[in-house]
Design a binder for these strands. Structure first.
Lengths: 148, 148
DNA sequence: TTTAATAGTTGCAATTTGCAAGTAATTGTT
DNA sequence: AACAATTACTTGCAAATTGCAACTATTAAA
């Protein structure tokens, strides 16, 4: 079984597609990156801009502008931190929360549909394997800056 | 185990990173998409532009310009088809082949490193699971345009 | 107190994107 | 054979996205 690369190449592509096809909720259209940003703001506890940008491995300047856009769309709110006046705390607005939840639902629908093509045993094995893979990738010291 | 979404969100991100960190071979710098293009041209048999663009689910106009760039870099060659004069057959130049092979090697190195954090049993299970997942995703009728 | 580091914002300039509209060649229809 | 409809690919925008360099403001370190 030595076509790992092939497998990853295709999976990467599929994940990319999966990634892109979030992203229109009612009249609101958001990009892939924006959906990741919403996801992380929702997940983390009172995150600063730098924190989310780091999590997503994004350039802070690009991130800053994305947040400006999301703030204009009234999906994200920037609140100056009282502890440190350099910092903004990010949070979702009600609408932002709604959008994030909608995306979450449709993602779950999609994933359930995908896993419906497997039997219970396969499902469990695959999930456990993805967890293993995730862990292994996080341990890797090759990825990602040193990779080439 | 109902945090599928979480798992996929992070994996998607990792795969994205993995994807980006190909791409400088000696003095040659290529983008993620370009590396996918090289990969597919190498893999397919005398592919036309439309074929590769379809495989990668890319807009044909974007693709056309990417190929122009790769041709200027002398990594890809466009040969007019003799069968159908509307069509160009794509192929890798010697340099293009070299770049594709180099990327392949470093990807394999990376993947081997990742899998080195598992024992033999886990490795096999994970690979088999990824194959299953891949198959299930390809069967899905929700993905990708209908997804939201 | 001065210096260094951190958080975040702007000014470019380059690249990338996709739609609309185009050319050229091929296929289908009558 | 003649005309219409498709297909393969290219170009013209105009908008969006990118990252580096340089900036302000604040905080931490010497």
């Amino acid at each position: 079984m030595e076509n790992k690369r092939e497998l990853f190449q295709v999976l990467t592509r599929r994940f990319g597609l999966l990634n892109k096809n979030c992203c229109s909720i009612g009249t609101v259209e958001i990009s892939t990156i924006q959906s990741h940003i919403l996801y992380e703001i929702d997940k983390q506890h009172e995150p600063s801009m730098q924190q989310i940008a780091d999590t997503l491995a994004m350039d802070i300047t690009t991130f800053s502008r994305q947040i400006q856009t999301l703030a204009k769309m009234e999906l994200v709110k920037k609140t100056p931190s009282t502890q440190d006046k350099r910092v903004y705390i990010l949070s979702l607005t009600v609408q932002g929360k709604f959008v994030a939840t909608s995306i979450d639902e449709s993602m779950n629908n999609y994933l359930n549909e995908v896993f419906s093509h497997m039997n219970e045993f396969e499902r469990e094995t695959v999930i456990r394997s993805l967890e293993l893979l995730n862990k292994a990738m996080s341990k890797s010291n090759v990825c990602c800056s040193t990779m080439c």
